[in-house]
């Protein structure tokens, strides 16, 4: 343990290029995936929280299933879709990412995380008073203003949804291993590197990577909290 801690400090300060690359890949994949799943998940969550429509129960049931879906299954699904022999891979369209690229990892991560974002956002919106929207309209809010106010009202829940999404992405390993391939200097992330180092028997390196992952996760969470707390408290 202690050795892992020391190793990680040494590694960070010596600016090990392989490590830097691993961290950058992790952050890039996580950042892009989280951004997109937030852009999908929050509006979806709000929509499900506020609108009534036929088949809503089914959509919610699917969403809850998605929230608890094993990432490796998502990985397998994305793998089969993007594989050269798969339905999307065969199309050969340039915007469809190839397997073993960060693009493929992002696709898998989005599928894994957006149900979490949408689900938590939905329950945050549902926890608001059902009459609040009418009250806002009665105070002269346009539909858009009312929607925005409700989102701000549900901010703690929405923030939790984003953080849950972040947590699921940064810690994911099975799916990214499958569709990313853990390629050095290309698709190796902190989690897949940890698996690899463990497999190699280099436990202290694995521990060091684990500590770095933990630290990044902690910093990002604290930053998100502060940022959102300040922006929304007014």
């Amino acid at each position: 343990m202690l050795k892992g801690l020391l190793d990680s400090i040494v590694l960070i300060f010596t600016g090990d290029s392989a490590l830097t690359n691993i961290i950058l890949v992790s952050l890039r994949v996580t950042g892009i995936s989280l951004l997109i799943s937030t852009l999908i998940g929050i509006p979806l969550g709000i929509f499900l929280g506020l609108k009534r429509f036929i088949g809503k129960r089914l959509v919610i049931a699917l969403l809850y299933t998605g929230m608890g879906f094993p990432p490796v299954v998502v990985g397998l699904f994305v793998y089969l879709m993007l594989s050269r022999a798969g339905p999307l891979g065969q199309l050969g369209w340039s915007f469809i990412p190839h397997l073993y690229t960060t693009g493929a990892m992002v696709v898998a991560q989005i599928i894994i995380s957006f149900p979490l974002v949408a689900g938590f956002t939905m329950s945050a919106v549902l926890s608001l008073d059902s009459q609040l929207r009418l009250q806002l309209h009665a105070l002269g809010a346009t539909p858009r203003q009312a929607l925005w106010t409700m989102l701000v009202e549900a901010r703690v829940g929405v923030l939790i949804s984003i953080i849950a999404g972040f947590g699921s992405i940064i810690s994911e390993v099975g799916a990214v291993m499958m569709v990313g391939g853990n390629i050095e200097n290309a698709t190796r992330t902190l989690t897949t590197a940890i698996v690899l180092e463990t497999r190699k028997g280099d436990f202290s390196m694995a521990m060091a990577l684990g500590i770095i992952l933990l630290t990044i996760s902690f910093i990002v969470n604290v930053a998100m909290l502060r940022l959102q707390g300040k922006a929304l408290d007014q």
Binding site: P70, P71, V72, L116, I160, I163, A164, F166, G167, S168, I170, S171, E172, V173, G174, T191, I194, V195, T198, S217, N221
Partner: peptide, 14 residues
């Protein structure tokens, strides 16, 4: 919450 989500994934594989 973060802890739980963070633990969930790696626990399965490791």
């Amino acid at each position: 919450v973060v802890g739980m989500t963070a633990c969930a994934a790696p626990a399965a594989t490791e």
